[in-house]
Every structure is written in C-alpha cells, then in structure tokens.
C-alpha cells in the first residue's frame, strides 16, 4: 500500500515542468521533498490533485493501486483519499469554514445520509482546539482576510477533519510563527500512523526537526534526483543545493 508516482511528465502550456518523476511513499511513512524554487514541487502536488491548468503527458500515480488519472474530477481523487495542503490556499468568499468543511464531509457520505450536525461541531471544535484556532473562525469565509499563518493552520484543520489516506503538505511551515510551527507540527504528528502516508514539501530543516521524516528526497528540474534519510536534510541546510547538482553531473 503506497502512493506511487511513476515516470510522471506534466506540462503547463507547452512547457514541461515534471520530467519523469518517480517517488513512492509507503503507507505509514513520512517523506520530505526539498528543492530549489521553481523545481516543480508545487506542480507535483497540483498535478496529482487534478488541477485543470496542467496536462499529464506520460506517467501515472497510483493511490493504493488505484490510478488517480483515471478519475476525471479532482473531487473524486480527494474522496479516494488524497489531500493537498496548498502553499497558497485559495480564498473562497462567502463560504464559511464551518460550511465548507461540512460540505466536504457530507460529500463523503452515501447518498441520502445526513451529517449529524451536533457531532460535526463537536469534532470540529476538538480539532480547532488542538490547533489553537479560535472558534470564531468557524463563521469566517474560507481564507478570506486570513493572515499567512492562519491560512496554513486552516489547511491543517481541514486535513485533520477530512482524514485523508495520503496528504501532501506544500510549505505548510512558511508563514507560521515559532509557536504556530510547533502547534501545527504537533497536529501533523498526531496524524502520523500506519494508516496514512505524508509527503512534506519544505525548504527548511526546522520543520523537519518537529516532523521527523523517514525519507528525504531532493527535487531538481522536475525529477527526484537523490533520496536519503533525515541527515540528507541537514546536509542540504548546511551546504545548499550546488553539491547535489555537481554530484548528478558526475554520475551522468
């Protein structure tokens, strides 16, 4: 059981961004991707989720053996168990957090079944308390006027409520203050377990101090070029990406 990305090529317009990407995240593990700006990390998350701007030319993504690209609509992929905490979460004017998450949960119920409202709010408040999000936020429009850090916290709240099988966290640490980083990381760690796989995209070691990864991958120009254990992240933090590129050149 895993989230398996095989030889993935994707382009936007006629520009290829993912150029044969291979990556497997077994259920129960936490993997991290690091890589320079523009290397294609967010693109990977969006392509898997089914963003309409990107076109997949070759390759597949298997979620516990199910081919995500056979699912036309992004919501089908989401209900199959994929969640993306976005680097830049969208504002949804007029739709409150409470109604939004509720609609997302309702969408997972069989036809004709209604979400129990009392239970729902109980559950929602529990997760909000865990992430130290003020309960007043339930009646605010999704991400509208949220600070950068509030948006990221709200993404994790959604993840906690929707209970995905695999989640991609795209730079969830950026924008979080020191305390928030710890709180959010604790929230993410609470979701680690044998039933879930996590892919954490980040530029900084400090997140990986909290959410310790099983495997660290380095992404360069639309491919995973190097993988290692958590010490790889330390080396990157200390030395940057130049040596990675040199090493690849030598290998080639």
């Amino acid at each position: 059981m895993s989230l398996k990305i095989e030889n993935l090529h994707a382009n936007i317009g006629d520009r290829e961004i993912l150029k044969g990407l291979n990556l497997e995240i077994p259920k129960g593990e936490v993997h991290a991707i690091m890589g320079k700006n523009g290397s294609g990390k967010s693109t990977l998350a969006k392509v898997m989720a089914g963003h309409p701007d990107y076109e997949v030319s070759i390759g597949q993504v298997l979620l516990d053996g199910l081919n995500l690209f056979e699912m036309e609509e992004p919501d089908q992929r989401a209900r199959t168990g994929l969640f993306v905490a976005f680097q830049y979460p969208m504002e949804v004017p007029g739709v409150t957090i409470a109604n939004f998450i509720r609609a997302a949960l309702q969408a997972r119920l069989p036809e004709g079944e209604e979400l129990d409202a009392v239970e729902y709010y109980h559950h929602l408040y529990e997760k909000m308390d865990m992430l130290k999000i003020d309960r007043k936020f339930t009646s605010r429009a999704v991400n509208e006027g949220f600070s950068g850090g509030e948006k990221k916290r709200c993404e994790i709240l959604q993840m906690a409520m929707l209970n995905p099988v695999y989640a991609v966290l795209d730079e969830t640490d950026s924008g979080l203050d020191i305390d928030a980083l710890r709180i959010v990381s604790e929230g993410v760690n609470a979701m680690r377990g044998p039933e879930r796989g996590l892919l954490v995209i980040t530029h900084y070691q400090r997140l990986l101090d909290y959410i310790v990864p099983d495997v660290v991958h380095v992404m360069v120009d639309g491919r995973i070029v190097m993988s290692g254990d958590k010490t790889l992240a330390h080396k990157l933090e200390a030395e940057g990406y130049d040596w990675v590129e040199k090493e690849i050149l030598q290998q080639a």
């Binding site: 989720a49 089914g50 963003h51 309409p52 609509e73 992004p74 919501d75 992929r77 989401a78 209900r79 969640f83 993306v84 976005f86 979460p89 969208m90 504002e91 949804v92 739709v95 939004f100 998450i101 609609a103 997302a104 969408a107 997972r108 959604q158 929707l162």
Partner: peptide, 12 residues
C-alpha cells in the same frame, strides 16, 4: 477556487 473546493472532495 472551484479546484480548491473540489480538492476537498466537494463536487463541482
């Protein structure tokens, strides 16, 4: 925005 909502499992 529609994509964002769909990513949460909500139909178009």
């Amino acid at each position: 925005q529609i994509f964002y909502m769909q990513q949460r499992g909500i139909s178009k």
